[in-house]
Each structure stands twice: as structure tokens, then as C-alpha cells.
């Protein structure tokens, strides 16, 4: 639940930042478009299986909010979108991840392959955003809070997976490995966040 709430908080922080400042400066449209793709391919099971009302509502919210974020960046506040600095090649993520999900999955069915694709893609979808921060050498505090909440969410899931492994015998190798990779990608950022942002400074990297 803490993981889900952290994820929800991250999405709300980002939407509020864009909406209140009427600007998406410093935000990678590519990462946001990848997240929309992640939620779309993962939550196709909305049509096939019902888990709980909570589960359904969260899925719908994640899908709708991700497309809304993409709409804000690429249409409504397009003039403020910093495309010159958002130069990470998304196809270098989508194509290998697509290949891997066809090769390594737990069941060779369309829905399962798309789910696997979404798990793999999510683990690396933040790279365009982290690349953008490293390229411009700075991030606004609010962007840092967003990244911290978003990174924490998968880290919190790891604790839940450990719990579920011991008490329910539940273990999803694909989700666990991807979740660990995803969390590791944030480690450098977590370090900067704790040493700088929490001490009232904004993230600036040496040129």
C-alpha cells in the first residue's frame, strides 16, 4: 500500500507541478510517453480479470493520468516542453525490451507477453528523465520530489515481495528482477536527493 501510495503521490506531484506552473520545463516527455505505454500494455487484464475495486480504480487512474500527462506535455503546454534536452533515444529501450519480453516470459500468450513487456519497460522508462537531468545538470526541487516518490515506489514493492515470498510462497521472478533493476537505476539520484534536496539545496551537477 505504501508503494502504491508513493506511486500515486509521484503522479499527482508531477501533474500539480505542470498544472500550477503552466509549464513542463525539465520534464522528459519521452519518459512520460513510455509510462503511458507501460500502463496500457500492463492493464489490459482490466478486460479479463477482476481483482478488487481498489485494483481496478488504481489501474484506471494510472492509465488516464499517464495519458493526461502526455497530453499536457505534447499539446497543452508544448511551448514549455524542453525537447532540445529530451534527446534520449526511446527506441533504444522499446526495441530491446520488446525482444526480451518475447524471449523471456512466463507464458507465450499475447497478454502475458505484453504484461512482461510493460514490466521490463517500466524498469528503464525513467532513463530519458534521468538523462535529461544529467544533461541540463540540474533539477527543480519539485521534479526531485517527483523522482524520489516514483523511485521509492518500486523499492517499497521489494519489501512486499520479500514478505509475500516468506508468508504466501508467492514469487514472480520477472517482476522481482525488473523491480530491483528499476530501483538500482534510482540509487544515484537517491543519494543526490538525500545529500542535497533534503538540505534545502536543489540538484546541480558539475558540468
Amino acid at each position: 500500500l505504501c508503494g502504491d501510495m508513493s506511486h500515486l503521490l509521484a503522479i499527482i506531484i508531477l501533474l500539480m507541478k505542470i498544472w500550477k506552473t503552466r509549464s513542463c520545463a525539465g520534464i522528459s516527455g519521452k519518459s512520460q510517453a513510455l509510462f503511458a505505454l507501460v500502463f496500457t500494455t500492463r492493464y489490459l487484464d482490466l478486460f479479463t480479470s477482476f481483482i478488487s475495486l481498489y485494483n481496478t480504480i488504481m489501474k484506471v487512474f494510472f492509465i488516464v493520468s499517464s495519458y493526461f500527462t502526455v497530453f499536457l506535455i505534447y499539446f497543452k503546454f508544448k511551448a514549455t516542453y524542453d525537447s532540445n534536452h529530451d534527446t534520449f533515444r526511446a527506441e533504444f529501450l522499446v526495441v530491446p525490451v520488446g525482444g526480451l519480453s518475447i524471449l523471456v516470459n512466463s507464458e507465450f500468450t499475447p497478454l502475458e507477453i505484453l504484461w512482461t513487456f510493460s514490466i521490463y519497460l517500466e524498469s528503464v522508462a525513467i532513463l530519458p528523465q534521468l538523462f535529461m537531468v544529467s544533461k541540463t545538470g540540474e533539477a527543480e526541487s519539485i521534479t526531485s520530489h517527483y523522482l524520489f516518490a516514483l523511485g521509492s515506489y518500486r523499492a517499497l514493492y521489494i519489501f512486499n515481495w520479500i514478505y509475500r515470498y516468506y508468508f504466501e510462497g508467492f514469487f514472480d521472478l520477472i517482476a522481482v528482477v525488473s523491480g530491483c533493476v528499476q530501483t538500482i537505476l534510482y540509487c544515484d539520484f537517491f543519494y543526490l536527493y538525500i545529500t542535497k534536496v533534503l538540505r534545502g539545496k536543489k540538484i546541480t551537477l558539475p558540468a
Partner: peptide
């Protein structure tokens, strides 16, 4: 450990 029958996580 058993594999997930369906995905109950978000």
C-alpha cells in the same frame, strides 16, 4: 515457489 496465476499487483 509458485508462479503467479494472474497478476494481482499494480
Amino acid at each position: 515457489a509458485k508462479a503467479a496465476q494472474f497478476h494481482d499487483e499494480l
